[in-house]
């Protein structure tokens, strides 16, 4: 028997090998390399560099206000994204699921923005924010539309949220749709017979039954929102100044403009990695506990 088990593993490995090898070469090895460089003061150019232990990490967390500010800004963004993205996606999914006709139509419409690459949608929206909205404001005298949408830090956060949501909601919606369709009709009918109204049915039957989808969607949003880059890059470039700079942008700036401090930027990336790891681990363990099986 043990030989057979061994053979099963071997054939499993053989099947995953092409992907695994590519993954190892192009992702795993560079990641480990990056972690190694995070303990050095390499500048990306010199042949020699020094090993400086935890110096980079200490500097990032204690002596780099720009990094800490970008960290807070990212956290704020993550919080808004988790709540809004999931709430809107769930509402849309329930709405579409409740339609008798034209389900496919609405599903396609809402999913469509997700198929446009993020950076392109950011550029599209730049045009909308800078050209279209002011024009509409002028023509219709809806003056509140005529704001400095991407130039004023007060509004640019909203603009970033709008574009991220527009782009990301569709994907979450599809996951919720699939989950909603998996809720057994019999349970809902039983609830109705017991005298529950639509809201009660949703809260006590549907919600628990789709917790696994919520876990996945929270995970995806959390993970994605921490790593947000293109939207901000395309819309505001982190500006004006650094007022909308997210953490990935701060890392990018450190590594590829400023002083080319690759080692220091790697250390910041490792910090980001650890933060995401902790957040997702906590999120998954907490939410897994709440899942129920039908």
């Amino acid at each position: 028997m043990p030989t057979k088990a061994y053979k099963t593993y071997l054939s499993l490995l053989a099947f995953t090998a092409p992907a695994l090898i590519l993954y190892a070469i192009f992702l795993l090895v560079p990641t480990i390399g990056g972690m190694y460089y995070s303990f050095t003061d390499w500048n990306g150019l010199n042949r020699s560099y020094d090993f400086i232990g935890l110096g980079n990490f200490v500097e990032a967390l204690t002596d780099d206000p720009d990094f800490v500010n970008s960290l807070w800004f990212t956290l704020k963004y993550v919080l808004f994204m988790i709540v809004l993205q999931n709430a809107i996606a769930l509402v849309l999914a329930v709405f579409i699921e409740s339609r008798k006709k034209s389900k496919g139509f609405f599903r396609t419409i809402f999913f469509m923005p997700n198929m446009i690459s993020t950076i392109i949608s950011a550029f599209m929206w730049t045009f909308v924010f800078t050209q279209v909205l002011p024009q509409i404001a002028e023509k219709t005298s809806m003056l509140f539309l005529d704001q400095s949408w991407i130039g004023d830090p007060k509004y640019s956060f909203v603009s970033i949220l709008i574009v991220s949501l527009w782009n990301g909601v569709g994907y979450m919606m599809i996951i919720y749709l699939a989950a909603l369709q998996g809720v057994p009709q019999s349970l809902k009918e039983a609830a109705i017979i017991d005298g529950a109204n639509a809201f009660q049915t949703f809260r006590s039957v549907t919600m628990p039954m789709i917790t696994h989808a919520i876990t996945i969607c929270f995970f995806l949003t959390l993970n994605g929102a921490f790593k947000v880059f293109e939207v901000v890059f395309g819309l505001t470039g982190g500006g004006p100044g650094r007022s909308t700079q997210v953490i990935t942008m701060n890392i990018y700036e450190e590594a590829f403009s400023n002083n080319f401090r690759y080692g220091y930027a790697s250390a910041k990336s490792v910090i980001l990695f650890v933060i995401i790891l902790i957040f997702t681990l906590v999120q998954i363990t907490v939410m897994k506990r709440k899942e129920v099986e039908a």
């Binding site: 830090p153 982190g238 500006g239 004006p240 100044g241 007022s243 700036e253 403009s257 400023n258 002083n259």
Partner: peptide, 18 residues
């Protein structure tokens, strides 16, 4: 270059009144 990058961002903030 690092200082030039910095001044660009700072003058943006200066213009925005920050």
């Amino acid at each position: 270059q690092a200082v030039k990058d910095e001044v660009g961002k700072d003058l943006q903030s200066y213009y925005a009144g920050q």
